[in-house]
Design a protein around this nucleic acid. Structure first.
Lengths: 216, 216
DNA sequence: ACACCGTACTATACACTGTACGTTAGGAGC
DNA sequence: GCTCCTAACGTACAGTGTATAGTACGGTGT
């Protein structure tokens, strides 16, 4: 029987091809059978390296997290925070599947911890007490996650002409009497959704609020 | 042939039983065949009322959005904003499936527009220009979405003893040398994740940053 | 009263999914 | 050369969403 030679697989190889498939065909179209086929291997071969699909998801997430650069050490802390948040957003934009990988699963894995360490270290060094540092970390993280996921979602919607058309007509069917602000600001909302400016706007709000309570 | 009498179904009835199933068995375990079975009807019967599964998702989302209370009109605008954000979070906590329904699909539907209208109206009335109002709306919305989704996700994780145990041991396996801040703040992070206080902390940061640039 | 037609629902089928189970063959160590 | 371990196999199952075609019922026009 034409059996593939042994030890051609490895956890890392599986993770890399899984990532390729997710980015090529979209996170939803990803399947274990797909990556197994790509590797010229039966679906069950993957279970030697991963306990189940979620386990593979976690591995891919950690693989992507490893790409995040380290925090620059020679800058005022607000700039450091900005850099961390921006690079996480950038990574999510470059790998849209990361949004779903981060949203649907808890955080675990060394690379994920490394990212948390960077941000927490900056906040502690800035002089925030334990509780404030923890709360700020969670706030910043969820802001980046939420706003970037939304941005990716909207961008995907815009690329699908059918969905985009339906969204437009749904918007235009709104009565200007019942929804004056939405109708008035619809162009503005469409124009400002996504993009560096929108992201930085919210990030700056958070940082401005944070600097008010800066420990001396 | 024992055929169910006609017109026993309706879009609204389907939406309500779909919602029931989502909340009873979890959003992931939800299936068209499940709700069809619950209604004593073949799976394809649903396609008379909804074009596909996503269409049904949208309808459920709008159904839930209708439960949001109106914005109180007699309060300073920061309090109004706080109220809107808090009630959206509360609704998401009461109906955990809403998080996934909001994250994965674009916004459309009258009830969803109503919510946007409330927040945008408050911001316009407070004197913000069009661009700032639009940007602020997006920022607040994505913050609420991101932080509450995260909260729900973590709460679900905590209820699954197996996943929770693995998360703990994964945390404890981190070297205090490589991840000093994470290790030090782990209890603080676990303690402060979720809850009204954490949500309000981030919301207050945003509002504080916003009030700095309040138009006199 | 009766034929008709649109529509609400059914039946069947297809191409998938993740994964449990039992089997087999390749390489390492004796 | 033999044994053992395990990586990869094949098969099977219980699901999924939905395309397609068929069927019976309710309301309408004559």
């Amino acid at each position: 029987m034409a059996r593939t030679p042994r030890n051609t697989l490895s956890a890392d190889l599986i993770v890399r091809t899984a990532l390729e498939l997710m980015e090529a065909k979209g996170t939803d179209a990803f399947s274990l059978r797909g990556v197994a086929g790509e590797l010229g291997v039966g679906p069950m071969a993957l279970y030697t390296y991963f306990r189940n699909k979620d386990d593979l998801y976690d591995a891919v997430r950690d693989h992507l997290m490893a790409l995040l650069p380290a925090v620059p050490s020679d800058a005022p802390w607000p700039d450091q925070v900005r850099t961390v948040c921006r690079s996480l957003r950038l990574l999510m934009l470059q790998h849209p599947c990361l949004a779903q990988l981060l949203a649907g699963r808890p955080l675990s894995g060394h690379e994920t911890a490394r990212v948390a360490e960077g941000l927490l270290g900056v906040l502690r060094a800035a002089g925030f007490d334990a509780e404030t540092a923890a709360r700020t970390h969670t706030t910043l993280f969820t802001y980046v996650l939420g706003s970037t996921s939304w941005e990716i979602q909207m961008a995907a919607e815009r690329r699908d002409p059918e969905a985009w058309r339906r969204l437009r007509t749904s918007m235009e069917s709104l009565s200007a009497r019942d929804f004056p602000s939405v109708v008035e600001l619809a162009p503005e909302l469409a124009r400002t959704t996504g993009g560096d400016e929108q992201f930085d706007y919210g990030l700056n709000l958070l940082l401005a609020g944070l600097q008010v309570r800066t420990p001396s």
